[in-house]
Every structure is written in C-alpha cells, then in structure tokens.
Design a protein around this nucleic acid. Sequence first.
DNA 1: TCGACTCACATACCGCGAGTACGTACCCAG
DNA 2: CTGGGTACGTACTCGCGGTATGTGAGTCGA
Lengths: 240, 240
Amino acid sequence: MAKSTASKLVPKVPGVPGVSRRQQYSASTKRALVDVAEELFTTNGYAATSLDAIVAGARVTKGALYHHFSGKQALFEAVFERVETDASKTIQKALRGSKDPWEKALAGLQAFLAVVREPSYRRIVIQEGPSVLGYERYREQEERSTFANVLEIVRSVLSAGTWELEEDMLQTFARIFFGAMSSAGESVSSADDPVAAAQRVETAIAFILQGFQALADQGVPLPGTGADEPQQLPEAAADD
Amino acid sequence: MAKSTASKLVPKVPGVPGVSRRQQYSASTKRALVDVAEELFTTNGYAATSLDAIVAGARVTKGALYHHFSGKQALFEAVFERVETDASKTIQKALRGSKDPWEKALAGLQAFLAVVREPSYRRIVIQEGPSVLGYERYREQEERSTFANVLEIVRSVLSAGTWELEEDMLQTFARIFFGAMSSAGESVSSADDPVAAAQRVETAIAFILQGFQALADQGVPLPGTGADEPQQLPEAAADD
DNA sequence: TCGACTCACATACCGCGAGTACGTACCCAG
DNA sequence: CTGGGTACGTACTCGCGGTATGTGAGTCGA
C-alpha cells in the first residue's frame, strides 16, 4: 500500500522558464512528503506516525525529509497550513454569491460544517493542532484563515443590525461562534446520523442568530466595552 | 528542583480499620505519581514529559509507575479524570444557591470561565485531552462531568421558556455552548487582559441568552427534530 | 565541453525514552 | 517463622526522532 502517492515524478508544466529541472524535482518530492504526511497524520495521528513510515510512503529517505523540513513538527505545520488554507478557500467559495448577511451566514455555516466533517481537518486542525503546535501558533494560523472567515461573517451579521460594536467584542463573538461550530462539528462527525446532527447544529445556530435579530428589532443595544457597565443577564426581563 | 512534591510518606489517617499499612503506602505513592504527572503535564505538555522525570519527581522508579498504571497514557487518563472531577465539583458548587435558571446560568458561566483559566484544565483537558485520549474517550469523560453541568444549565434555561424541546436538540445546544465557552476560555487565558476578556465573553453569552429570552417572549417556537422542517435563517424576518 | 561547484538527496549512526522481564524486600495471614 | 503475595527496584530492549556525513546528478561559467 501507499505506493500510489507521489508517482508523478515529472511535473506537468513543460517549459517554465525560470524553473530548473532540479527545482521541479525538489518541489515534487516536497509535495509528496506533505501528501503522505497528511494522509498518515489523519489516519493514525501525529504521535503514532513515524517519519520512517512517511518517507517510505513518499519513496524517499529521512535525508530528503530533513532537507526540506527542520523536523517532524515543521512537517506537521506544513500539512496543517495546507489543510487550513484549503478549508478557508472552500468556505470563501461558498460565501460568494451571497450578499445578504444572513444568507451569507447560513452559507458560511453550512460550508464550515461540511469542512469540519472532513477527516483531515478534524484530526489535524481541530484535534491535534492545539496540542502539537501549541495554542499560540495554532491561534496564529487560524487567525488568518478559517477564523478570519468566521470573523467576517459575524461582522457582517452583527453590523447588519442597527448596532455597531467594538473590535474586541466582535472578536469575542467570533471566538464564541468559532468554538461552538468546531465543537459541534466534532460531535456531528462522530454522531450516529451525521447528516441529521449537522442539521440540528445548523438549526441551533440559526436560532441563536434569530435571537440576535429579535433583539435588534427591539432596539436592544449590543454591549460595549464591558469595563464600566456590569452587563448582566435579564433576570427580571419579561415573562414569568 | 522537584523534590518538594510527595514528601509526606505517612498518610494522615492513623487507624483506619480495614486499610493496612501497605495499602496506605501504595495509595500514597499512587497519588504522588498523579500529583507530579499533573504538574509536569501541565507545564511541559504530554509529549515533552518523560516518565523518568515523573518518577524522579515522585521519588520512585518506573517499576512503581508500571505497577499502578498500565502506561503513560493511563497515567494521563488518571490525571485527566482528577482535573475534570475537580472542575466539575467547582462548577456544581457555584451552582448551589441559584434557583432561578438565568441566575444559575450566569453563575455557571462565571464558574466555567474561572475553571477554564486554570492552567491544568486548559492544558490537560482542553488542549491535549482530545489529542492524547482520542476524541471518543475524551467525549466519554466530558460527558459525565463538566459537560453534564453545561447540559443541566442549558436544560433549565431552555425549559424556562415556554418551550419544551427534544433531547437531541438539547444536546446540540449544550455542545454549542460548551464548545463556545471552551474556545472562548482559551482565548481569554491568553489575552492581554484576561479579566476584561472574561468579562466580554460573559457579556456576549449573556447577550445570546437574552436573545433566547426575546424569542420566548415573542412566542417563537424552538426548532424540533430538524428532519421534516427545513428551518432556515429569518431571511425576510423583520427589518431591512 | 569540461571542469568545479552546489544542491538534493541517501546512508549510517546516536541518544532518548517508553515499555518489559525479572529480581527483591517487605508486610501480613496462618 | 514461614510461605506467599504485594509493591516496588534494576537492568535491559527497541523503536523513533534527530544528526553527521557521504555522493551523485544537475548546473553553470570559461
């Protein structure tokens, strides 16, 4: 097994002027390493995947690996970045065509729930990302890819109400939704009926947004800094 | 360094009838191992913590460790379970005295945000838990401790409205809030001003719950199964 | 065209750390 | 006091990440 990957040794572009033959070969093996690593990391996890298995799958040796990457973690990082970038592109693609913020939010939510169900994204980004990269690096990566999409959606939705709110608070809301969808997506993937579970998540988050809408209609202000106003729950709000 | 821990060799209870001297010693060393492991796992992480360092800290050898635990992962699991149990107890304690669901939710939220800021809970449960234990075992553990608290709170809050909703949907909402607070808690801990960040999270979630309240007042029904009703976002709901 | 130089690997090796096999001292029942 | 079992300690193996170094195929200037 695992001899199907990286069989194309000769790249497709025949005569790119500035790129030499060696550079093409080099890039090809590097891609092969990342390909195999992504596959093995996804199925077996980071710790249970040996470098020997990776280089064997890519039909090279450790010398090649350590020529392209500084170590196992760097290789993981490359895989992580690619999975993240792909996911981000998928989501952004789903966002095109939706101009209305709410519609956009729904499309983004569906796209995110689809992405989160991909084994590679689940395992590499959500499960092992924070552990392997450390939370700081993990956050840096997320910040400029998938999380950025969530942030954009949240921004457009929240500013669609009559509110305008501070950047800190926007970030907080985005974090909340991002975490909610990640966690929910995980449970969706391992549910008995993933489709129904995804539907429930979609419904639940849509309901939350509907609550926002209702508050906007009532003219309820979005909380501000949170420094001087001890915003509390509506203990004696309306009913009961 | 690391000779301060596990210095008490003689347990405190002098004459417990059914417990022999050896059993006391045994339990003591076992606790020492878990203590040191929790400390090292928290500061250095799972992978970067060697068993040699743990047994050295507990002033025993690997023979002792492998007598009490089947391996490194089992030791981690013991640590995980203790941290989780402690967290759950802390939250439950904070819940006592609040009868009103909304008040209870606020108390629980604050308690959870406090727990999530503890280094041991962050590192062991949130960051490395899913990776080390695997998501399945991780979920099993969470299900009967901290997540159970969140579920209970969500249940009481949602059933405080005029709604009554299905178990699946409840689970979904609980997952969403649990993930939201975990993720938010992580970012809170690594924020420049954790106190202000925690305040923002509290405010944001309170706002979401306020949205629920508003919908309840409007008589908007909670979504049901999600199978036959393609619940969507309120595209043409109210304004705009 | 032909050497020197360099890059993209391959090979051989090291050290660390998880796990194991086995020895042993100590406690407790009889 | 004696056998047995428990609670460790000791010594070892082996897989794996990382390193040091060799080498042959491109590449490029003269």
